[in-house]
Design a protein around this nucleic acid. Structure first.
Length: 732
DNA sequence: CAGTGAGCGAGCTTCCGCTTGACTT
């Protein structure tokens, strides 16, 4: 960022000022004109200020400052859906700063993100600023990447706010308000206070509930696999049975397997022609938010929330020696686009370090159809900051997240990898009573013939990819099977959703945005609609009840296709001049009718949300029930309010004193842990969640669920000196 | 990575989408 670019900025700044249509009143000369640029993110503001030089002040709005009030509907459905917008609570300071910043400037450039929400932010800012500074010229500028060139180009070609785009945003905002604030109160009245429903969260809940139903309906089917150990020269290898009597093998039970073994036990085998298959493996595109969250969840075990917190830190900047460097580009994006400048830098760096793996031209990935494309993909800001080179300045989690971002980006600009799979069929020679009793076993090996982009992987490398080669056999070899190894399996039902898979599904359906994937999961957890154990999302009794209620009564809205339909109509507003109020009316008229009907006719669910426990109240003898309170579940007497007996939910028996193990939350962070109810007399505690009514067969202490990468999900005895441990059974 | 410790039920809540800090009692 030399003096040359600064000079360039000045020239362009003049152009920007002269092309502003609004009348200017200030008498200052063009040379000393001052501009206020408003962006959304403060970190972005800092960078842009560096690019633009001293005539420009860059401030951040930090998202929406003006919005519908939280406390009431604020959409006048009687009056053409007129919304009432107010300054968001707690944001008056920011707005004042922007307004007084405008006063000190000769012109304002609104540079909020180049998407639907950003356009609305610009519009609100425009109104709020011109209310206080009547004659100041305000224009809109936009860019899709934070590079000196993109910023200067934007400044030199200011535009006006796109009113149609703003109206599409208002329509989106009003629709979500009408849906959420109409349905939620029905839930308060019929089920329980504080509950919520909405276009996004209720579909996410529905998906999780429906998956659970599939899991429950699943009946595992038994099947078998048969492996044989062959010996050749000095080495031995294992091959799997793939065909029997000329048909694809399908072994249903043990007797089917034993029958085959009996027939081929003594047979000689011969090796058929060895087949070679080459495969080209392309690298994946750089990360979008959703992809980053999925990969971090799958590879690192991060929740989507944790991923975003750490990414935010990398984006805002890390102390590298004496300077502070933003290591990654903006982390909330739906695009895989990479700026030309970053591509050039990547190619230069890769050309130096991996010259044979540099493709002849930069690789461009196609941006998704639904993407709003306001930001680049998530990538390292400077590819030369390799993970290893900054490792000492990062926490362990920051390093791991940065590593996958860096590797995914670097790999995306490298040549494809190629693998060779060699596969040999080993066929039994007829010798038994029936000449059709032919068994075909298969063994194969895959190795890289060109490593390409996989060379750059470390954090993202998968163990299976290291390659396994074919045993030293050739066509026509005669072999004998030394032993047979039949293995029993059960077909696996569908898996529960995880953070990664629910985000993937929502994104595929166009539901939610990069900024809302993580918060949506948090809402479902906060409302006690869903639990997350061992990374798996499962509905609670309450969650299922709410989902069923919503699907039965508001099926048209609580529906994966609803958002897609909404987006189509928003496009009509934005691009085809359709009135946003017409679109909303078309939705509202039938919806409102349903809301009124349901509010009138729906029976109360209030006595259906307490779960029976089988325990009896020691004070009055009535059954105890599991209830949901402000701080989570607790156990209470069903005779309330006559009997006020209540206590925490016992989860297990304390191995130290025989008391109840109950859930508690830490004061500081509200994190759950499990301790003895007799505290402080007994100080037993653990942070592993006890499994319901399961005790160790070896020592009798209670069992907990544990998850780690090596063992996956498994049970563990809480007794530290007991070695009992085993894999959790499927479907449990 | 270490260390973690009420009472709770009816008391006013809720949406989605932008963005970062942290209440003025």
């Amino acid at each position: 960022m030399s003096t040359a670019t600064k000079g360039g900025a000045k020239v362009k700044a003049k152009k920007a000022a002269s092309s502003t249509k609004s009348k200017t009143t200030q008498k200052t000369s063009a040379k000393t004109k001052k501009y206020l640029v408003i962006v959304e993110s403060p970190a972005k503001a800092k960078t842009i200020e560096k690019y633009l030089g001293h005539q420009y002040t860059v401030l951040a709005s930090m998202g929406h400052i003006i919005d519908l009030p939280k406390s009431r509907m604020a959409v006048d459905v009687e009056n053409n859906f007129q919304p009432t917008f107010i300054t968001v609570r707690g944001r008056a300071k920011v707005l004042n700063a922007l307004q007084s910043g405008a006063k000190k400037s000769d012109a304002v450039l609104l540079a909020s993100d180049n998407d639907r929400e950003g356009e609305a932010i610009a519009w609100h800012l425009n109104n709020a600023i011109s209310a206080k500074n009547k004659d100041i010229p305000i224009s809109r500028i936009s860019f899709n990447e934070i590079t000196p060139k993109a910023i200067k180009d934007a400044v030199s070609s200011p535009t006006q706010i796109d009113r149609a785009k703003v109206e599409a945003q208002i329509a989106r905002r009003v629709l979500d308000r009408l849906v959420g604030y109409s349905i939620s109160p029905i839930l308060w009245k019929k089920v329980k206070g504080g509950l919520s429903a909405g276009r996004v969260q209720s579909v996410a809940l529905r998906l999780i509930c429906e998956r659970e139903k599939e899991i429950e309906a699943w009946t595992p089917q038994e099947y078998w696999e048969l492996f044989a150990d062959f010996k050749t020269g000095r080495s031995a290898f294992t091959a799997q049975l793939v065909m029997w009597r000329g048909e694809k093998c399908d072994l249903k039970n043990e007797s089917a397997v034993k029958e085959i073994i009996a027939k081929i036990e003594q047979a000689d085998f011969t090796v058929n022609e060895i087949r070679e298959t080459y495969k080209t493996l392309k690298p994946r595109p750089p990360f979008t938010t959703s992809q980053l969250q999925q990969t971090a969840a799958n590879r690192l075990g991060f929740t989507s929330r944790k991923t975003m917190q750490i990414a935010q830190g990398l984006y805002e900047g890390v102390n590298l020696g004496s300077s502070r460097v933003g290591l990654i580009t903006y982390m909330r994006t739906d695009s895989v686009r990479i700026s030309e400048q970053a591509l050039a830098e990547a190619r230069e760096w890769l050309g130096k370090h991996y010259p044979e793996d540099l493709p002849p031209a930069a690789v461009h990935y196609s941006v998704g159809k639904d993407a709003q494309d306001a930001h680049e993909a998530i990538r390292p800001t400077y590819i030369s900051y390799t993970p290893e080179s900054v490792k000492d300045s990062l926490s362990r989690d920051e390093f791991r997240l940065y590593s996958i971002i860096w590797e995914r980006f670097a790999a995306s600009q490298m040549k494809p990898a190629r693998t060779l799979t060699e596969s040999a069929d080993i066929v039994s020679l007829p010798g038994g009573a029936d000449p059709a009793d032919i068994a075909m076993f298969r063994v194969s090996g895959t190795r890289y013939v060109e490593k390409g982009w996989t060379k750059v992987l470390s954090a993202l490398a998968s163990k299976e990819e290291t390659g396994k080669s074919l045993p030293p056999i050739k066509q026509g070899d005669i072999l004998k099977a030394r032993s047979f190894d039949p293995q029993q399996h059960w077909t696996q039902g569908p898996a529960r959703f995880t953070d990664a898979s629910i985000i993937k599904t929502l994104e595929e359906n166009g539901i939610g945005r990069p900024s809302t994937y993580a918060p949506t999961i948090s809402v479902l957890l906060d409302r006690y609609y869903v639990t997350r154990a061992n990374k798996q999302l499962a509905p609670t009794v309450l969650g299922r009840l709410i989902s069923n209620l919503l699907v039965e009564n508001f099926g048209a809205v609580v529906n994966a296709d609803f958002t897609a339909g909404m987006e189509t109509k928003l496009d009509e507003v934005e691009l085809k001049g359709r009135e946003w109020t017409d679109m909303i009316r078309e939705f509202w008229t039938p919806f409102k009718k349903t809301v009124d009907e349901v509010a009138q006719t729906l029976e109360s669910y209030k006595d259906r949300i307490d779960e029976p426990t089988g325990e009896v109240c020691e004070k009055c003898g009535k059954p105890m029930v599991k209830k949901l309170g402000r701080y989570g579940y607790f156990l209470a007497c069903s005779g309330f309010p006559e009997c006020r007996n209540a206590k925490p939910l016992p989860l297990a028996v304390c191995p130290k004193c025989g008391g109840d193990i109950v859930a508690r939350k830490t004061k500081k962070r509200g994190k759950e842990f499990y301790g003895c109810a007799n505290y402080p007399a007994c100080d037993f505690l653990t942070h592993f969640k006890p499994l319901a009514n399961q005790n160790c067969p070896k020592c009798g202490w209670f069992l907990v669920e544990k998850y780690d990468k090596r063992n996956g999900s498994h049970k563990l005895c809480i007794n530290p000196s007991c070695d009992y441990l085993h894999e959790a059974e499927e479907g449990e």
